[in-house]
Design a binder for these strands. Sequence first.
RNA 1: CGGGACGUGGCUCAGUCUGGUAGAGCACAGCGUUCGGGACGCUGGGGUCGGAGGUUCAAAUCCUCUCGUCCCGACCA
Length: 569
Amino acid sequence: MRYSKFFLPTLKEVPAEAEVISHKLLLRAGMIRKLASGLYSYLPLGLRSLRKVEKIIREEMDRAGAQEVLLPMVQPSELWKESGRWERYGKELLRFEDRHGRASCLGPTHEEVITDIVRKEIRSYRDLPLNLYQIQTKFRDEIRPRFGLMRSREFLMKDAYSFDVDDDALEKTYQVMYKAYCRIFERCGLDFRPVEADTGSIGGHASHEFMVMADTGEDQIACCTSCDYAANVELAPVIQSSNHQITKSPNHQITKVSTPGKRSVEEVTEFLGVSADCLVKTLIVIADDRPVAALIRGDHELNDVKLMRLLGVEGLNFADDATVRSVTGAPVGFAGPVGLSEGLKVVADQDVSILKNFVTGANEPDAHFTGVNWGRDVSMPEFADIRVITEGDPCPRCKGKIELKRGIEVGHIFKLGTKYSEVLGATFLDADGKKQLAVMGCYGIGVGRTVAAAIEQNHDENGIIFPIPIAPFEVIISLINVKDTVMSKAAEDLYNGLMAQGVEVLLDDRKERPGVKFKDADLLGIPLRIVVGKRLEEKNEVEIRSRVTGETISVIKNEAVKKVVEILQ
RNA sequence: CGGGACGUGGCUCAGUCUGGUAGAGCACAGCGUUCGGGACGCUGGGGUCGGAGGUUCAAAUCCUCUCGUCCCGACCA
């Protein structure tokens, strides 16, 4: 491709709308443009990267035995009513009526449609296993689209759905897909980690997320420093701690102390001269519609996913000031377990069960209790693991140490089981002629997000540093002086020579000054840059520079093609 | 949806507090000089100041409403 003919509008300055680095660079490098909130157009350069990721995904899906299909984006409400998700999915499901008044939606995911196909076409265990995938646009009417391609409303997703005869067969399929996912992200040149994950609204038993490691990632991952355990912090179980400095001391008297205006854990502990792990904070949350008190050690954090699971509810929010006041009798910051009304559900984290002589709010303004003890001062609540795992906690698998890292979720695989085959009636006859439910799995990859994550992980102050497999071009030739016929000829020869070798190359033949060409080349993140400049007339040499290392080598013009092909291997 | 910020040539922003004839840099067009890390000079084109009401002799500026964008929380590839 010739740069002078290529539609590639780069930006010198960062558009005001972009906050995160991938978003800024995608815009600056002329890869995407925004149409409206959460809606982006891919420009030619962006599309090239997107297509490369797609190609890798297709190859690995096909290798894993999945077959490509293409399902409709517009879907009838009837199917969604059958699965129960028309009511349950919430406002992310964009619903509308067609001209005949038929309720429809834009597909945010395709379990319903695929299961409908399978239930109509699959009769026998001989037809299974079956694994179908598509790469298609999804629409989710996100409450808050953000970060450019990271969370857009319309986005390109690879989604696969597997159907097996039983759990064992699903397990095998799941493993095959797990490996395929690893290969995909390896081939994309990304530093990633599969982590155990929550199943969320899709449902099912087991799942893994594939996280591209990046400090700017939205997800926190608990990783073991000794074994290969890694899990989303939402899910990572906490091993109950068995010892605590306070457990050996004798019981103190419960004492009400005045703590005027001291609400936060820091304020109270500093005021009373105790450490945060000797304080029990009482969080009033609204679970679905019911207030619940959650007791957590002062230095720990509530894990709302764990609490939601424990309570069996779908929604969890912190109570507002008025609710806290009516439930505890005190403003926010002074709640405690002592003397809470009988009717209020109380759940305590397991790690507060061994505490003695702890500090809590006194359920009245500007007052706390010290020396609180279980049994004597407060009846034992329900104890459970409801906190977020933290750095230094023991690994749930090997008792090694946990460290926290950040990642971007680019893929997610689930064992769905019979959740959808049951409600939609996807059955087959087994070898004994008995009707059985198909056992399903589903597997998603955010294609655009993968490109964004790659940038988030690979960039510097000058721009993108694309991994070679997903770079929009492998090589850019910076022709320093287009008016110099010798240089131009050399650049053309290189350009044609590289293309003949199947190398994807962008020839910067614009009438621009060298500085402009260098800046743009860096911004676009093309892995190799060949400079055809003054070394050509001096020594008949061109320079090959690596975008990653900045390392530059000079080679004789006629050997450049060979050298480039060699480096790209 | 709750909380916060912002809408001024294509882009980045100043001007708004304290009302008085819309500015800069970049980009764009022309000419000249330059030419290995986003050049310089001269000339030129381009803006209903997001929109609608209102206050005023006078509104980018003050008031009301509205639309849009971004950031922080719940969702998720």
